[in-house]
Design a binder for these strands. Structure first.
Lengths: 233, 233
DNA sequence: CGAGCCCTTGATGCATTTCAACGAATGTGG
DNA sequence: CCACATTCGTTGAAATGCATCAAGGGCTCG
């Protein structure tokens, strides 16, 4: 039955996100079953919103495939990108009534979608899971602190270098070649610079033989050590 | 007995930090007693470290009086200030083994200091408190996102304006006049700009009659609406 | 009253934004 | 299959904002 297969796939994804360090095997299996049975898996097209800022925060999302961008826009039209999410990241858990940013797909994406009530219910029944989740939140917090640090410290070109190393790590799967799912404008809004500056950053790194660019989104890191040294200097 | 009075004071502080929205009064009282009995209250001088980056994260701190700054420094000597903490803020809960920033006092400060183990113990016994604490973490997360947003969006002078409005809100206690506990350099490192630029920002806002400055640290906001409009423009 | 620290201000140069034009890639309809 | 429109990226030139260098002023504390 196709539904069952679906649930198994969801369970696998959930386990990699929530349960990877669970010691209590039984409780782990139980809560995974409960979540998987009530989770939906949905597929959305490219450049669509999973939710928008100030929507009531009813769901938690886990990307299974595709790429998602978290952003906030001002009334004047400018935009800050907070994060890029890929497979296995977690999105949307908060105790606040509404989201404080929008989530937009960069590519066609498949996500697992679970109602907040169900998550909380599981947390109440299995305190171990709630504790485990606390770790996830703390990890996200430390990632944002790192991002804040980068924003405050480095020059625009150094931030580009730092960004590319991060993307290689997250998208390269061990290879130095990877495909960026986001545009130069998205990168610029993530790193707090203009579109042109982000483009010039890429050009400079290419000219200096630190990276290779084919077809704009296909990037190869040629000299990781030198790129790292440049990003830190 | 002075010790008892001490514990009562600690309990009051803890309640304002943790328990203000607790519905379950009895459980609330019980966990407060447990925390207060095992908490220490310590006083440290100005410009001292409560802990440093990479120290093992053994304690949670709650400022009772004074001001504390969270910072991270690079090997090259530059510094990023992540946050300023005042009375009633919470500091240091994390599941990671070590702190990812240092905490330095700006003024002589009194803080409540509780061992992580005790906190976790309380969380295990009282899941309600753990949930309540999750809210605190989520709130911190949203504050850092706001800070990231500000860093990415605004010009240096606008960030100063925004900063002053935030400080008025947190330090003014309803008045438009307040005392800044941090130096121009601290502000610069918080907002990602040079000392000179932060100083020029103050001068500009003074020249434009948006704020009044006496004795460098004593600030009065003269036209809140105009300052807000400037910070958003 | 002097020393030291912090803050302010000016001058200069560099980094980044802005404005503008062009080029490459993609998609559409004839 | 080709013109055309559209979107996105690159590059140059000019303008601006910010950092850096440098000097001076004011406050505080011995």
């Amino acid at each position: 039955m196709s539904l069952d297969i679906n649930k198994v796939a969801i369970k696998t994804s959930l386990a990699s996100c929530f349960g990877s360090t669970m010691k209590d095997e039984e409780a782990s299996a139980e809560f995974l079953d409960e979540l998987a049975n009530k989770a939906e898996e949905i597929t959305v097209g490219s450049a669509e919103y999973l939710f928008r800022e100030k929507d009531s925060s009813d769901y938690v999302y886990i990307p299974v495939s595709g790429s998602i961008m978290l952003e906030r826009s001002t009334s004047t039209g400018s935009r800050q990108v907070f994060a890029f999410l890929f497979t296995g990241n977690l999105l949307g858990i908060s105790e606040t009534a509404s989201y404080s940013f929008s989530a937009k797909t960069l590519t066609e994406s498949t996500v697992i979608k679970i109602h907040q009530k169900i998550i909380r219910n599981v947390f109440d029944k299995h305190p171990t899971v709630a504790k485990r989740y606390q770790n996830v939140t703390n990890h996200i917090l430390s990632l944002i602190l790192d991002q804040l640090f980068v924003m405050g410290q480095k020059t625009a070109h150094q931030r580009i270098a730092h960004f590319l190393l991060d993307m290689e790590h997250r998208l390269g799967h061990g290879s130095s070649k990877f495909h960026l799912p986001m545009s130069r404008q998205d990168i610029a809004d993530y790193l707090g610079m203009s579109l042109e500056t982000s483009s010039r950053g890429f050009s400079k790194l290419k000219k200096d033989m630190l990276i290779h660019i084919e077809s704009n989104y296909q990037i190869t890191i040629l000299d990781r050590d030198a790129l790292f040294a440049y990003s830190e200097s």
